[in-house]
Design a binder for these strands. Structure first.
Lengths: 233, 233
DNA sequence: CCAAAAGTGTTATAGCTACACCCATGC
DNA sequence: GCATGGGTGTAGCTATAACACTTTTGG
């Protein structure tokens, strides 16, 4: 039995994958393998299959296109303008993913054809993918102000200067490092390690790691990472 | 031309319509007019049509089922478990709407068959609509803590005690009225009127109205309406 | 020895919370 | 005249923002 007199539609899943390499934000793109817009740059996309949910589809597609697994992935919003795809009607449900670029760089380069583009040097994207990226970036700015999600972009061990760079990069601003350090440490999310990163300075900066238990407890609660004045403009 | 070898799927739009009548929150439900689950209570739902976006579909369906127009409507999330509808595969994109119950009560009762249910006395809902409501309510609590969206639930003129009731109802808590008044007035969102509401007290409470310009400027910015402790639990 | 980045403390201010009494009116 | 809900001010505390110097070490 079916519902009668209704139109069935193709459903796509597109993932906006943000990465951070220690100094700047990048977006993961892939060259589309089929017409239209074959060879143009695209988000990580594919069609929803009969036996999977959208969450599952997003995970599957990301794995197929990049090998990435077990990463932060969250629904963003749907895009459904009737003519957004010239071939036929397709609605897209978008997801945002956050990953530490270095952790997967080899894998992505060698086995797949996805490529990282600095946020300021994005190529032209197919369809409405440009708009998806802008909305995703705005949501990331919004959400990161209250929830410690940016840690998803860092390696297991990272330094406070790296962490501050990451926040400053997202909001295009500079924070006082004394205040930033105090605020971050007051969350009890970080454990100080005994060794230092000596690549970025002569003195070396202590590594910290995420306290996984605290992190999971805190993800859904609301902190205040960024002064409201930075968000409201 | 079409994409080949892909499955096309029914896309539904379901709207969670929250209302406030001055003392409690209610949910607008309708008796489903077709099988399966005919006559059972359902959110305001319908199928996406070929020439409309999801936003447009949500508006159209709401108008068809309730006569409601020009109300606050925002995408929530998609629901796509493969067997969520027993007839055939349907993915649903949900929207949340906020309205002042009294403003439309006549219209809804007389011309349509939608009905308001107090949040604590909801009937069994079809499919996964129960889950949709819970997620919508959580998001409303989250969002209302930082953005003045709850004003959508109030009539054009309202009193500070009504406003406070509305916030207290959403968070199931009580606020100190001196602090609440000060915080609300400090936003400059409200204009004091000259007349009073004398229905709810002998002394009467002054009416206030939204400053439309301030409101539009403020909607996207982030305030702090509710102490974080109330949200984080 | 010097350049470059890491690390650290104090003070002033603003915003928040807690708290209690008087006012206006209908009955 | 009294019961009911509306309206208002202050003081202590906490969180935030602004600010500059010392430390370490590779070259």
């Amino acid at each position: 039995m079916k519902y009668s007199n209704q139109t069935r539609i193709l459903v796509a899943v597109d993932s906006i994958v943000f990465g951070f390499d220690g100094s700047e934000y990048k977006l993961l793109l892939i060259q589309r393998g089929f017409a239209p817009e074959k060879e143009k740059w695209s988000l990580m996309g594919g069609f929803l299959q009969p036996e999977e949910s959208l969450d599952e589809a997003a995970k599957r597609i990301l794995k197929q296109l990049t090998g990435l697994q077990d990463i932060y992935l969250e629904e963003l919003k749907s895009f459904s303008r009737p003519n957004r795809d010239p071939i036929e009607r397709v609605i897209a449900v978008t997801y945002v993913a956050l990953i530490d670029i270095k952790k997967y760089q080899q894998q992505i380069n060698d086995d797949f054809h996805a490529r990282w583009f600095p946020m300021k040097e994005l190529p032209q994207l197919i369809f409405d993918h440009q708009e998806m990226v802008e909305i995703a970036l705005n949501k990331l700015r919004y959400k990161a102000a209250f929830h410690p999600i940016l840690f998803e972009l860092l390696p297991d061990k990272f330094t406070l200067p790296q962490l501050q760079n990451m926040y400053e990069g997202l909001y295009n601003t500079k924070f006082d490092k004394r205040n930033f350090t105090r605020k971050v440490l007051s969350t009890n999310l970080l454990n100080k390690e005994n060794d230092k990163d000596k690549l970025n300075s002569k003195k070396g900066a202590f590594y910290y790691s995420l306290d996984e238990k605290q992190y999971k407890d805190t993800l859904l609660s609301i902190q205040n990472f960024i002064p409201l004045t930075e968000i409201n403009g």
